[in-house]
Write a protein that binds this DNA or RNA. Structure first.
Length: 595
RNA sequence: GUUCUCAUAGUUAAAUGGAUAUAACAAGCGCCUCCUAAGCGCUAGUUGUGGGUUCGAUUCCCGCUGGGAACACCA
């Protein structure tokens, strides 16, 4: 279905060319003066130079053509050369009606040429609990993935576990110290290893920081850990078996935590999955003459003529021959290209890693790991700060576990719902329902609070503000949906049906405003996908919720006497609800029935 | 030191080069015999600084000031 703005642009373009002006000046935009008009075209001012004519004369010409067009209820030229347009109510209603009929899509067509895009987000380390630093990657990545899916693309989310390197050696070393009798440490052992892990997730979460702490003060301990890491990488059987256990135990726990955030991954690959590809990749880089030795390390030059800053070479192997971050990321690209040949790979990390990705991307292109048809994109997000503007910490200054943060918001929300329940006893919400609802609303508060900001910017995670639930918040959006559900339930509860319903031209200003917002849906979603910008979806549903609440305030739907008009209202409500629900779904949260 | 990035109301955030810069929170005022007042309406208040490009700049370019960040063997 064509975008509303495009339909308008087509008509305006016709008018421009009929008057003898170039089509390129017929650029229509949403009005930034809603008091004067709904859409505007400023092309006359730009055209005045070429045609050596006063801008308002050009605008006058075009306006004269558009006045008689049934698409517009108003087309006027305003000095110095603005062309102001208002949409005809009947035309708008017919567009909204088409949106209603387009079930599930609401006028937003799927991509003609679906792309395969891998989204690399999450990035948790095994054996370590998720902390607030993982929140943004998970939330933003999940939303970008869902927006892409809605647009019809083949989006593949990969959690990209941090499951390689010294941390594994540390855990093995500490475990050996505590339980030397385990068969994993017996080099003579050739039998099957036990199915059950020799530790729980709670123990694992304690073992790692303990080991990490010891390695910093105990040189011999650190040496042992490095040795264990090396043996693991060489493929020592018992250690590989332990790695599998660590992975299993961790992943089970991680899945549970991500599930609570309504975040899921198609792939649970990790850094360790890239290791088998490293030797061949490195050899090829050497053979092709890209990789050379510099200061003891193996590097690939990635600087370009046009760089305004120094881009250091991409390090492929450390002086001691070991691989590192960039090696793993490059090797990961090797298997991603081999297994999926994606049209794009999107990485979500903290924006401080920007240079790393510039190096990796350039290196991947230069060495031919990634061809010219695959787009590599790094979305660097800003830091989640506390109220003081500094990185988010617990009250005693530690790193806050994600679970605790979520629990805290859940509790706040439950309090709020219980209070509301006391005020409106007619709602009759059970304790059980309140609990479930609290979780749903809390998640919306957290996600909307994050996603409504531009990803690249730092933002302030203010629990007090997010739990106050007024204004531009997730709960406000949910509340709007709940209101609509409530009316629809009442309507259907009376045994009424919408058969034969169609959208009537708006009966009021607020109803027209609501329709105008709805008409922007397809263009908004397309734009949000192209720019990987979930905050645009947030801005849209906020506007839409506002438009609905104004309409709701001024229109008594259940007491409307004209049956056909009431049906039209109900149909409009149904569309509003569906669009809002579609939007919050791509943002990664959902609405309760009551709150 | 070099480079990048950000700077908008008391606060938190918006704005493909367009008219009178948009909201929310906080402040003040009003609206529940009416579909959930977690709502609606109203009042007051902002583009760090100096230049430039343009008919027109929050937006593009250059300088300054002030925050944040990155700068080869951590991830």
């Amino acid at each position: 279905m064509k975008k509303f703005l495009d339909l308008i642009t087509e008509e305006v373009t016709k008018a421009f060319t009929e008057c003898g002006y170039d089509a390129k000046y017929a650029k229509v935009t949403l009005s930034n003066r809603p008091d004067l008009c709904e859409y505007q075209c400023n092309g006359a001012m730009a055209a005045s130079k070429e045609y050596k004519k006063a801008p308002f004369m050009i605008a006058d010409d075009v306006a004269a053509k558009l006045v008689t067009n049934p698409m517009f209820s108003m087309a006027e030229s305003v000095k110095p050369g603005f062309l102001n347009l208002k949409i005809d109510e009947a035309y708008l209603a017919s567009y909204i009606e088409k949106m209603c009929a387009d079930e599930g899509r609401f006028g937003c067509d799927k991509a003609e040429h679906p792309k395969t895009i891998i989204v690399d987000y999450g990035g948790p380390n095994v054996a370590k609990p998720l902390h607030v630093g993982h929140l943004r990657s998970a939330i933003i990545g999940e939303s970008i993935k869902r927006i892409g899916k809605f647009m019809g693309h083949n989006m593949i989310g990969d959690v990209h576990l941090g499951d390689w390197g010294l941390q594994m050696g540390l855990i093995i070393t500490e475990l050996k110290l505590r339980k030397p009798e385990l068969v994993y440490f017996d080099e003579e052992y050739t039998g099957e290893y036990p199915m059950e892990a020799p530790f729980t997730i709670a123990e694992l979460e304690e073992i790692y920081p303990t080991a990490s702490g010891k390695s910093k003060v105990d040189e011999a301990y650190k040496e042992a850990a490095l040795q264990a890491t090396n043996e693991l990488q060489q493929g020592r059987r018992g250690y590989r078996a332990l790695l599998d256990h660590i992975l299993n135990v961790s992943v089970t726990d991680l899945k549970k935590n991500y599930e609570n955030l309504n975040v899921s991954f198609e792939l649970w690959k990790g850094e360790s999955d890239a290791q088998p590809y490293i030797p061949d990749m490195v050899q090829k880089m050497k053979d092709d003459g890209f990789a050379y030795e510099s200061e003891g390390a193996l590097v690939v030059d990635v600087k370009e003529e046009t760089d305004s800053k120094e881009i250091p070479p991409c390090i492929i192997l450390k002086s001691d021959g070991a691989s590192l971050y960039s090696t793993t990321d490059l090797a990961t690209l090797v298997w991603r290209m081999k297994d999926y040949n994606p049209d794009g790979v999107i990485y979500l990390t903290d924006k401080r890693q920007e240079l790393h990705f510039i190096q990796v991307f350039r290196c991947a292109r230069k060495t031919g790991i990634v061809g010219p048809n695959t787009e590599l994109k790094h979305i660097g997000f800003g830091t989640m700060n506390g109220k003081d503007g500094k990185p988010f910490k617990t009250r005693d200054g530690g790193v806050m576990r994600l679970e605790y943060l979520v629990d805290e918001i859940n509790e706040e929300m439950l309090k709020k719902i219980t209070e509301n329940q006391k005020e409106k006893e007619s709602l009759d919400i059970s304790d059980e329902e309140a609990k479930v609802t609290a979780k749903v609303v809390a998640l919306a508060a957290i996600k909307y609070g994050d996603l409504s900001n531009q990803a690249s910017k730092d933002y302030i995670f203010d629990i007090d503000r997010f739990t106050s639930f007024e204004g531009n918040t997730g709960p406000y959006i949910l509340y709007t949906i709940v209101r609509i559900k409530s009316i629809l339930n009442k309507y259907h509860g009376l045994g009424k049906e919408e058969t034969g319903a169609f959208i009537e031209p708006a009966h009021s200003k607020s109803e027209k405003d609501l329709m105008m917002e709805l008409s922007k849906f397809n263009a908004m979603m397309e734009n949000a996908f192209e720019e990987s910008a979930p905050h645009k979806v947030c801005a849209y549903i906020y506007d839409l919720a506002n438009a609905f609440n104004s309409f709701y305030h001024g229109t008594k739907i259940m007491s409307e006497e004209n049956e056909q008009t009431q049906k039209s209202y109900i149909r409009l409500l149904g569309l509003t609800k569906a669009v809002l629900e579609t939007c919050i779904d791509v943002l990664g949260f959902s609405a309760p029935d009551r709150m």
